[in-house]
């Protein structure tokens, strides 16, 4: 009995180890979503804080779906959501088109080179995101490096307006999120048994057929993970459209930010966030599933 009690006491620290991060996440991660949901159902007022209380003081609940109705009726929001999905999807495909050959090349390089190439993929990730976006401002300007070089080469005689266009946003998105695409792709391609491609060719497949029959389907977990890792943050991106995009290129992250800070309409901003979250729930769950499967596959 005593031994059992001693063992129990030894296990107390385990409870403790679980409880501390658990509570932290409950309070600072889960609870805030309940609050967002609550405020999205309030009316905006000019006060501090600028929304009506959830409980009306007489024991009733003062919930209103006005903000959601506004989101539905005002065409601006529907267009913005659609445009965000579209731009995030295009940026994801561009990342895939650039990232797949890169990951393939890295995975097939010899070991010393491979580590250096990987390091060079990861390195920008450690350098400030904001400064990396900023670097493109200097390149894409009307008087920026790219225009100067093109004029000097006499390819063009007037600067091309790269900045404040959708093109600039795509450049910024691809630039910022490329490592998120390359790394999971590299991981699956590197694990792949090269004999499989040889075997396909041995059985009569041309190199391109062997790629589509073998390499591509086997790389699918990496493709899915990479695409989701790019698509999800790109959907909510604020800095890139703000710094590189024009005033008409309204992405949902920026609209949320402005709704909150400029218009001080907290309930509407909350509703925008909830709808964005609903749009992202499916890809997020998908990503977590695929990552969990990956973790199990390793074990």
């Amino acid at each position: 009995m005593i031994a059992v009690a001693g063992f129990r006491r030894d296990m107390l620290w385990q409870r403790f180890t679980i409880a501390i991060p658990y509570l932290w996440l409950l309070v600072f991660f889960l609870a805030p979503f309940a609050i967002i949901l609550k405020i999205s159902l309030a009316d905006p007022i000019i006060a501090q804080p600028p929304f009506t209380p959830f409980f009306d003081g007489q024991g009733g609940v003062a919930a209103t779906v006005d903000s959601y109705l506004f989101l539905l009726t005002d065409k601006l929001y529907a267009v913005t959501y659609l445009k965000s999905v579209f731009m995030a999807a295009v940026a994801t495909l561009l990342c895939l088109a650039l990232g797949f050959p890169m990951a393939y090349g890295i995975a097939r390089a010899d070991e010393g080179t491979r580590n250096l190439l990987l390091l060079l993929i990861v390195l920008p990730f450690w350098i400030s995101f904001l400064l990396r976006v900023y670097a493109w401002m200097g390149l894409l300007n009307n008087h920026g490096v790219i225009n100067n070089v093109l004029i000097w080469l006499q390819v063009i005689d007037k600067p091309i307006a790269f900045m404040y266009t959708d093109f600039a946003i795509y450049v910024g998105l691809v630039y910022s999120y490329l490592p998120f695409m390359v790394l999971p792709l590299y991981a699956t391609l590197e694990r792949m048994d090269l004999d499989l491609v040889d075997a396909a060719q041995d059985l009569g497949a041309r190199p391109s057929q062997a790629f589509w029959d073998i390499t591509w389907p086997l790389a699918r977990p990496g493709v899915i993970a990479g695409c989701l890792l790019v698509f999800i943050p790109a959907m909510g991106e604020y800095v890139i459209p703000y710094l590189l995009g024009g005033p008409e290129s309204l992405l949902i992250g920026r609209v949320l930010f402005d709704e909150f800070f400029v218009n001080r309409d907290w309930p509407l901003a909350s509703a925008v966030a909830i709808v964005l979250l609903l749009l992202l729930v499916v890809p997020i769950v998908f990503l977590q599933r695929s990552q969990a499967r990956d973790a199990e596959g390793h074990a």
């Binding site: 996440l25 309070v27 991660f29 805030p32 609050i35 890792l229 943050p233 909510g236 979250l277 990552q291």
Partner: peptide, 27 residues
């Protein structure tokens, strides 16, 4: 729930995390 809460902040768009935490602090 725990493992879901551990991985979610990594994939949550920053605007949502930021907004939700601010609203928590205000409340």
């Amino acid at each position: 729930l725990f493992s879901g809460m551990i991985t979610s902040p990594m994939v949550m768009p920053e605007v949502i995390t930021g907004l939700s935490l601010l609203l928590l602090f205000v409340s």
